[in-house]
Design a protein around this nucleic acid. Structure first.
Lengths: 212, 212
DNA sequence: ACCTGACACTAAACGGGAATCACTCAGGGC
DNA sequence: GCCCTGAGTGATTCCCGTTTAGTGTCAGGT
């Protein structure tokens, strides 16, 4: 009869972590697994095992699985937001601001493909709208920061086509398009990311915004 | 003892459908459910119930769930491919061909949002690469059809930036970007689709391709 | 010193997914 | 008549997220 190795019964288990610390541990473990194996691959049980804790314990700190992953997304988006805030305060031309924001956006996406996919690609069909609200709001603020310079440009009459609103959306979307495709379809043969980013940026800026 | 109403034991069940017919029935039912409830909502059981057959029966005709949904995607992409083929044979300027192909692409996406998401948005993280191959190949042929005119344009020295390869990818991506965002983030407030399509098209065409 | 309540945590179970199994059963060729 | 084949089935397996009911621990009041 195989007694088999069961989980360490209690003594070998992690001692209680007090509150915030344990929460951080979970997020760290979840992020690693999530980045390595994507949304579906990051199961509650795997995360719990990585922390050294029962799967149920995660529900002490997070309402559900989505909450954990969205938290990870949130932290990443905060990063993106702070970049935009910093750029919007630089003493540079509005057009240059827009260019740099979009550039930073695309680089962020290539640097954090799984997180980007979680927050900005359709996989969230699975995640209910309300749960996304917090992250979504953060995204809104990010987009607002980006819209600022665009409105300046529009006010200066330098938009070749569309309104400030639609132009901002289209500029964002073009950048989203290239990064999301490269991220979600890695099997396709793509031009080098640097080239794609530059062509996108040049094309879309010249296409929508009149030269000085 | 509750005998309970079991499923109609046999007699009331569907008679055998012979081969291709039953396969078609399944696809039709699956498509309806899939369009109405999305990828996750289209469960094997729901589809089977709609056809009036046990869930196991679906495995007679399709290897697994992904196969069913990819088949639906495949049919839709074939539609898209035929549009591109038709356009590429029209006796019109290469630039006009590109413009019309992209326009048709975006309209297709808005008309078939669920299918578009299945095939072109990241949800397929869940679907293994090999399974996607067939649909992916179809997508390649579609993209090839689109690349043709772009190469003509490049050969005529009218590309403002990038190579034929990267320009084609960026043009496609810009259109993918706007439709995928609008589709996957319906809660956001978007400019009207028509305006977004036009701004995207005008912007990106003028940005990448030199005027006559 | 003793209760008490909050807290971090657990094992076990639930319900619902996809997928597999061993099986039945009708029809068609020989 | 016999046997093969292919469509179809119910029961089962496995894994997932989540819930339930409980255990042990510890700070703080009395």
């Amino acid at each position: 009869m195989t007694v088999a190795l069961k989980k360490p019964p209690r003594s070998a288990r992690k001692p209680k972590g007090d509150g915030h610390m344990r929460r951080g541990e979970i997020l760290a473990a979840a992020e690693k697994i999530f980045i390595a194996e994507g949304y579906a691959g990051a199961t509650i049980r795997k995360i719990a095992d990585a922390v050294g804790v029962s799967s149920t314990a995660l529900y002490m700190h997070f309402r559900d699985k989505d909450q954990i992953l969205l938290e990870i997304g949130k932290e990443a988006i905060e990063q993106l937001l702070s970049i935009n805030v910093a750029l919007s305060q630089e003493p540079i031309d509005a057009v240059e601001k827009v260019r740099r924001m979009l550039d930073a956006y695309m680089r962020f996406a290539f640097d954090n493909p799984n997180t980007y996919q979680l927050v900005f690609c359709g996989s969230n069909e699975a995640i209910s709208v309300e749960k996304q609200q917090a992250v979504s709001d953060l995204g809104d603020r990010c987009f607002d920061e980006f819209s600022g310079p665009i409105r300046e440009i529009a006010a200066a009459g330098r938009l070749k086509t569309g309104t400030a609103e639609s132009a901002a959306q289209v500029l964002w979307a073009a950048c989203h398009g290239i990064v999301s495709l490269v991220i979600t379809k890695p099997s396709r043969s793509w031009a080098p990311p640097e080239e794609l980013m530059q062509v996108t940026l040049d094309g879309v800026m010249h296409g929508l915004i009149a030269d000085r």
